Amino acid sequence: MNTTSTPPARRIRRLTPLIGTALVGTSLLALAGCADPDSASAGQGQGQAGSPAASSSAEAFNLSPEQDRFSSNVSAEAKALVPQEVNADGKLTVAVSPFAAPLALYATDNKTPVGNEVDIAYALAESLGLEAQIVPVAWADWPLGVESGKYEAVLSNVTVTEERKQKFDFASYRNDLLGFYAKSDSAIAEIKKAKDVAGLRVIVGSGTNQEKILLDWDAENKKNGLEAVEFQYYDDDSASTLAIQSGRADVYFGPNATGAYKAKADGKTKLVGLVDGGWPKKANIAVTTKKGNGLAEAAEAGLDHLIGNGVYAKILDRWGLETEAIPDSELNPPGLGS
């Protein structure tokens, strides 16, 4: 996470919450700390996400405890790579943080973790010939849990960084993307580069990677004589949602997963642009394991098996994350901060 001071030249609106009902209980900023364990508990662990509002124009999500998950057959290659100490009890203990839809959240019974990360954890375990044992944890607690052996793997939107690679091994399973989302009937069609945000009113999280990117783009625009961005900061999801729907803001810029979930759940917003989470560098979300124990190699093979048999694509599509799919898993890919 990059904390950036506020330059005096840019236009800023710091707005307090408005009266309104959130379309989805998940905070718009819920995923903003995925690259920083010290800030993640403040961003990713803000509470349980509620059920999305139904809409005739959009698909509904199954948030019941009874999940009809996509299952996988065993990969002989991946199974052969599983370390003996993991194979011993026939289970793969996976830590997830059920506080950010659609990645992981509690089902309607308020105790069963569901979501994209949970589905991948179950399928990955099956590909390794193991039974998934899902353990809900606070996001900030996973590093110590993996190092101590309490958790064998973590699927919790963990971004690969060079600093983390000193302590953990990784097998990538999703692109870390940021998304621009506008009202579904907005005239804004595409945001790909700096000039596309000139003059727009953009909702962004303070102190996040996305704010840093927007600051860089805004500086480039002003250097080129283009209109400045109006930065808008809100205290909660209800206010942000109402700002977009009422026309007080033009776009929301933040973690694509959250935006995609809301767009699919209620049909009131649309994706108008994607940016790498580590812009200008690519950022990877990965299964996280204890360094040097060999489980990451097995996870990489297992994920490639899921990609090959189609289960991976079905899971991402189920949770509206098909735009974040990767063609194959990579062992310890280049991390941010290099």
Rank of each mutant, 00 (worst) to 15 (best):
residue 78 A to I: 03
residue 151 Y to W: 10
residue 83 P to K: 09
residue 121 A to L: 09
residue 292 G to F: 06
residue 152 E to R: 04
residue 247 G to H: 12
residue 254 G to Y: 01
residue 187 A to Y: 08
residue 19 I to C: 13
residue 78 A to W: 00
residue 19 I to W: 14
residue 35 A to N: 08
residue 240 S to H: 04
residue 312 Y to P: 08
residue 244 I to Q: 04
residue 34 C to T: 15
residue 207 G to T: 03
residue 8 P to F: 08
residue 231 F to I: 13
residue 314 K to R: 10
residue 247 G to A: 13
residue 65 P to H: 01
residue 79 K to I: 08
residue 66 E to N: 07
residue 163 E to M: 13
residue 248 R to H: 10
residue 32 A to M: 05
residue 158 V to T: 13
residue 256 N to H: 15
residue 192 K to I: 08
residue 166 Q to A: 15
residue 168 F to N: 01
residue 313 A to I: 12
residue 144 L to F: 05
residue 153 A to D: 03
residue 43 G to K: 08
residue 99 F to Q: 04
residue 68 D to M: 12
residue 16 T to M: 12
residue 294 G to N: 02
residue 17 P to S: 14
residue 200 L to E: 05
residue 250 D to G: 12
residue 281 K to Q: 07
residue 177 L to Y: 02
residue 54 A to Y: 10
residue 117 E to G: 05
residue 86 V to T: 09
residue 69 R to V: 10
residue 83 P to W: 11
residue 228 A to N: 11
residue 318 R to T: 05
residue 133 Q to Y: 01
residue 101 A to R: 02
residue 45 G to F: 13
residue 133 Q to K: 04
residue 72 S to R: 03
residue 317 D to Q: 11
residue 145 G to Q: 04
residue 315 I to Q: 01
residue 282 K to T: 14
residue 272 V to M: 04
residue 232 Q to C: 12
residue 183 K to T: 10
residue 63 L to M: 07
residue 63 L to W: 04
residue 253 F to T: 01
residue 95 A to C: 10
residue 120 I to Y: 05
residue 161 T to L: 06
residue 272 V to D: 01
residue 56 S to K: 14
residue 97 S to Y: 01
residue 307 I to L: 03
residue 56 S to T: 15
residue 215 L to F: 10
residue 187 A to T: 14
residue 162 E to G: 07
residue 192 K to L: 13
residue 155 L to R: 02
residue 15 L to P: 01
residue 61 F to W: 01
residue 161 T to M: 06
residue 107 A to S: 11
residue 306 L to Q: 03
residue 254 G to H: 01
residue 336 L to P: 15
residue 32 A to N: 09
residue 202 V to G: 00
residue 240 S to F: 02
residue 149 G to A: 06
residue 293 N to Q: 04
residue 49 A to I: 07
residue 160 V to G: 04
residue 169 D to G: 12
